[in-house]
Amino acid sequence: MNIFRLAGDMTHLASVLVLLLKIHTIKSCAGVSLKTQELYALVFATRYLDIFTDFISVYNTVMKLIFLGSSFSIVWYIRRHKIVRRSYDKEQDTFRHYFLVLPCLLLALLIHEKFTVKELLWTFSIYLEAVAILPQLVLLQRTRNIDNLTGQYVFLLGAYRSLYILNWIYRYFTERHFVHWITWIAGLVQTLLYADFFYYYFESWKNNVKLQLPA
């Protein structure tokens, strides 16, 4: 475990906690895309099947359980909680799941490291994670006014994969640990999707004005 990996995991954890905090305390999910949250729940459910088969470390297992638990609770809050669900803007959050899920499924069937169920699901989860933020980014673009917590959530989520890339570079040089090129490409795509958001996030921070995305 190096500092980049730890920082990446911590920003990932923080992003989820920020979102849960917002939903739980303000009882509102305004500006949050249910589509993105459902895709993340699917990402974790397909990637972390290995908690039943492999043991890596207590840290690893605990983190996996946290990500599974938090993603499914967020989905539950937006769909089922009697107050939170009222703040969900269904009309704006129109991105179609299958538009992302199907291509990722096909790509995983075509490009993978090993043809086993577990490995295919893992590869699928890597592809899906790379693009799962899209419904959320589209929603931000549509609503334009972004509250602080939602902005921080997206920022932390983007920071997480960028730190993972630094972690892969570091591991390559220190441990000669090779991350498969599938992971590299997906990770780079995932990080690049945030480039635009990062730009406006830092601009608003620098000028000390409220974050707004251009129409």
Binding site: R5, D9, H12, R47, D50, D54, I56, N60, M63, K64, F67, E113, K114, E119, W122, Y164, N167, H180
Partner: peptide, 10 residues
């Protein structure tokens, strides 16, 4: 021996 890719990251 067969190399099984192990995913030790999250």
């Amino acid at each position: 021996k067969e190399k099984v890719p192990q995913h030790d990251e999250l």
